[in-house]
Design a protein around this nucleic acid. Structure first.
Length: 230
DNA sequence: AGCCAGGACTGAG
DNA sequence: CTCAGTCATGGC
């Protein structure tokens, strides 16, 4: 059979422990304030966080990290401030769609603390431009609601660890797997996703799949073959 | 010089 | 339903 069969696939819980011992506490989201986190979730879509942070800083300098202020700011101004994230025309629309939604409730954010997660999630998913990852990031990181965030890094890392099905599986299937395997703990979900991102940014990249920094190195696709030949 | 980034939508087939 | 094409800037 394939070389992979010789390597034990770590469970989701074991993988968490390995990542945690390699990188420690992450304390995400890397931003302050609920509205800022929500915007960041949209701005960082398919974009490095570094660039999203530049955009956030521009908005902050113009006092636009507040729903009403941002809502009525001149579109061209806002677009130039968020230019570093790329897709700025699309993302401007997405932010405005999101603000249309918030405006229906007077820009009140307290409902995100009170309503059931499934209700909030489906509301968010109805906003054009907010997909599953963005919705879940908002719920988990801005409001500490119990929902597991899945992203491209999750698919890549766990695909290499031996969970090949995650590479192509629907978002909700992967999310359900982690929420079934891991204890229902908001802080744990928060840290786990953050650890996955940290690991993948540093060593489990698409281009250099060989992982130097942690014990997961022997699990990566590029190294599995190497290991089994030893 | 490319290639890639913490997605999501749209239009074909 | 699956899926390539699209959006666009900045860093390596």
């Amino acid at each position: 059979m394939s070389d992979k069969s010789k390597i034990k696939i770590p469970t989701a819980a074991e993988t968490y422990d390995i990542l945690y011992s390699a990188y420690g506490t992450q304390r995400w989201w890397p931003g302050e304030g609920q509205f800022e986190i929500m915007l960041g979730a949209i701005l960082t879509q398919n974009t490095q966080w570094h660039n999203a942070a530049l955009a956030i800083a521009n908005l902050a300098a113009a006092d636009l990290l507040e729903p009403n202020a941002l809502y009525k700011a001149p579109p061209e101004d806002v677009k130039s401030m968020i230019a570093p994230v790329g897709f700025f025309n699309v993302k401007y629309k997405r932010m405005m769609n999101f603000l249309d939604y918030l405006a229906k409730y007077d820009m009140a954010l307290n409902r995100f603390q009170n309503l059931p997660v499934p209700d909030l999630r489906s509301e968010l998913l109805q906003v054009n431009g907010i997909g599953p990852e963005t919705a879940d990031s908002i719920l988990l990181y801005a409001f500490e609601r119990l929902i597991f965030v899945v992203d491209a890094y999750t698919r890549r890392l766990f695909g290499r660890l031996g969970y090949g099905w995650m590479e192509k599986a629907p978002y909700d299937d992967i999310q359900a797997y982690f929420m079934k395997e891991m204890p229902s703990d908001v802080q744990l979900y928060n840290e786990y996703h953050a650890l996955i991102v940290t690991h993948c940014k540093e060593t489990c990249t698409k281009k250099a799949p060989f992982c130097f920094a942690c014990q997961l190195s022997s699990r990566c696709a590029a190294t599995a073959k190497f290991v089994s030949q030893e």
